[in-house]
Design a protein around this nucleic acid. Structure first.
Ligand SMILES: [Mn+2]
Ligand SMILES: [Mn+2]
Ligand SMILES: [Zn+2]
Ligand SMILES: [Zn+2]
Lengths: 147, 147
DNA sequence: TCCTAAATAGGAATAATTCTTATTTAAGAA
DNA sequence: TTCTTAAATAAGAATTATTCCTATTTAGGA
């Protein structure tokens, strides 16, 4: 029920010291629901933690990725973004607005999972698989939808 | 037969002026067969064009992408790489060695193409779809293979 | 051969990210 | 509860990646 305690439990469970900075950063990535950049996380957490440094946000985000608490996504232009969702899903990246939209499709998931089950990839320890659609949003004011 | 003339025809056909710099850069991306970074292209072309500037390589690579002469790939770490192959294929990115390996699978291609034919993505002009497997190469001296 | 818009070189500027080090702090031990 | 210490953080310097600026050069059409 208590979000804050929940977040702290996640940090602690992954073997990390629970600090105020880590707590607000993980909370931010979860609450912003927009695949934020480090700079955006930084701006967001400065509200509740004004003395936090940008370097800490960079380091902490990577620490969380290593521990599997969040995921990272690189855009078609090569910029890093962070994602609180850890389940299998694809991303739509808008080249003109820089927004990232999640999409879920059970069928597509299975096809890809099955493919890599069937075809053995040898000499590689797979970390993750990403499926990304890149394109321009036509009307930037409207949403993208997958029917 | 003549590679050089071939390359120049491609540049010219896409509506660009044929310069020595553009010729050697496009030739480099084709010949290096390793999804090179700008810096790597720069080092390669300096042999045949010692006065070329790094800024020209950056600009030219993007120009080629816009004209559809090459493709760009961003790694899991958010670094840009260039690819002479324009057909549908996936990439394996090795987190530890930074190498990118192509893989082709007709079946997987079709499933993905069909998915986006079936499901209409609205308010988005799709530019491209990327499927990338990220992982660590276990033995860095051996190759990765997909059976 | 001439003309001109486009391309390039060279370097400055900016953006993105990492590193360094002094100081602070979480959390386990006493 | 206090002590201890390894780990985390702030602050800013340094590095890396990329873009921008401008004087000069050049491709290619007239
Ligand atoms: Mn960048
Ligand atoms: Mn980078
Ligand atoms: Zn996502
Ligand atoms: Zn490729």
């Amino acid at each position: 029920m208590n979000k804050y305690a929940d977040i702290q439990a996640k940090i602690s469970d992954s073997g990390l010291k629970v600090t105020h900075q880590r707590t607000v950063i993980l909370e931010a990535v979860h609450n912003m629901n927009s695949h934020p950049s480090v700079e955006q996380i930084y701006d967001y957490v400065k509200e509740s933690c004004p003395s936090i440094s940008l370097g800490t946000v960079y380091k902490t985000a990577e620490t969380f990725v290593e521990k599997g608490l969040i995921a990272k996504v690189s855009t078609h232009e090569g910029h890093m973004r962070y994602d609180p969702k850890l389940d299998n899903h694809g991303h739509i990246y808008c080249t003109n607005t820089a927004e990232i939209v999640d999409y879920y499709d059970e069928e597509l998931n299975e096809v890809i999972i099955n493919f890599f089950k069937k075809k053995k990839v040898s000499n590689l320890k797979i970390k993750n698989i990403t499926l990304q659609i890149n394109g321009d949003k036509i009307d930037p004011d409207k949403e993208i939808s997958i029917k």
